[in-house]
Each structure stands twice: as C-alpha cells, then as structure tokens.
Amino acid sequence: MRFWKSWLIARKEFDFIRIKKSALGISFGLPIGLGILLPLITYLEITRKKVPIEAVTPLMGSFAFYFIIIAALIPVYTSVSSIVVEKIERSLEPLLATPTSDREILVGKYIATFVLTIVGTYIGAAIFVTLMDTLTRSSIGYFYFPNTAFDIALFAAAPAASIFSTAFGVLSSSRVTTIQSAQSLSVVPLIPLIIIYLTGELDLINLNDTSILAYVAIGLAVAAAIVFQVSTAVFDREEILTRWK
C-alpha cells in the first residue's frame, strides 16, 4: 500500500469536486446551513416563544447529533459519485490499467470524501458554536459550547460516521450498476443514526450523555472498520468493467 498513490487519486477527486457545484453544495452548503439555522431557531425559541432555559439546553445538546448525521449524509452523495462517475465516463478502465492496487484506489477515494466531509462538517460546526454561544450566552449566562458531549460527537463520532458512510457508499457503488441504485443503497448507514436520534427525542436515551455518545462513536468506528475491510475485499474490478454497459 503506497499512500502517495492514494493521495494522488484523492487530489484528482478534490479537483473534480471543486468544479462540481452539486458536490460543493452538499458538502458545504448543508452543514453551513445547519450551523446557521439551528442557533437561529434556538434564539427564536428563547426570545419569542419564551421557552424556559431548562427546556432549551437539552435541545441544544442534542443538536450535536445533527453533525454526526451530516457527517454520514455527505458521503452518500460524494463517495457514490466518485466511483459511479468514473464508471459512466469510462475513466475507470485506464485507471485500473495502471500499476495501482484496488486498495490504493479506494483509499484515495476515501481520503477525498472523508476530508471533504470533515472540512464541511467542521466549518458548519464552527459556525454553529459561534452563533449559538453568541445568541444564547445572555440567556444562559455562560458559553454552552464547546462541551465534552459536543467534542465527542464532533471529533470521534462524526469522523467515524463519515468513514462508515464513505465505505458503505463505495461498497454499494462498486456492486450496482446505476448511480440511483447506489445512492439508494448508500442511505443505509443513516438508518441506525436516525433511529438513535429518534430514541433520544422520545427521551428513551439522553443524547447529551457523554457515555451514550462515546458508545455511538465506538459503534460507528467498529462498523466503519468492518465495512471498510468488506468494501476493499469485494471491490471487483472485473465486475465493474464487464457488467457496466
């Protein structure tokens, strides 16, 4: 495994994404939008609806989970298109003809998707923290963010969610023959995250609990490692070249 080759492939992916407005919109527009929208909603809840602070702070804490979901959502589009676009534009055959291993190619794709997702998510999170603290400090009396739960969500669970989703996207896009079916299949990693979030909303678990978030992060990391191994093991260049018409 030569990392420089993966990095070379990742750089090409960055160049492609840079000109692809839809990929940029999803990677940056979505987390930035969320980073602006959530503090504004919270501010309106406090100032207009006069919701008590005790009821608002648990909600603010659970917002951190949105960034885990975002980190899993962005790769659904970007990781799938990175393989499928190469298939459609027939650029995969010359790429596969080079002395580059499947793992080097896939890791290059993972790096590009991961970096893009994490940069987008962190920009959104930075905006979220700044705006939220600015708008709520006078009501709460202190800066609510950052806190341990948020740090675990952002620096442990979100990267793991991103890798898990990326690996799943690559896995599905290398096994199916259309971008639509690959994207449909790639939303699967979102399902457990949405279930956890809804469980939190139903007060069955506390999403502000650092140990819950730590378990989520560990679970996602284990799932990411397994799916990553599976996705590289089942990446079948022959299947891709011969089944795609």
């Binding site: 010359p94 080079t98 580059t100």
Partner: peptide
Amino acid sequence: PDNVGLYEFYSAYKNLMYFGRL
C-alpha cells in the same frame, strides 16, 4: 481503451501528468 475515458474537466496536460505519476 475503446472509450478514451479521459477526465474531461482536466486539461490534456493534467490528464497526462496524472497518469504519468500513476
């Protein structure tokens, strides 16, 4: 290959540079 399979967003020079490195 039978289909050129070039990266259309890249210039010819960048395409060749990329593959030369690969």
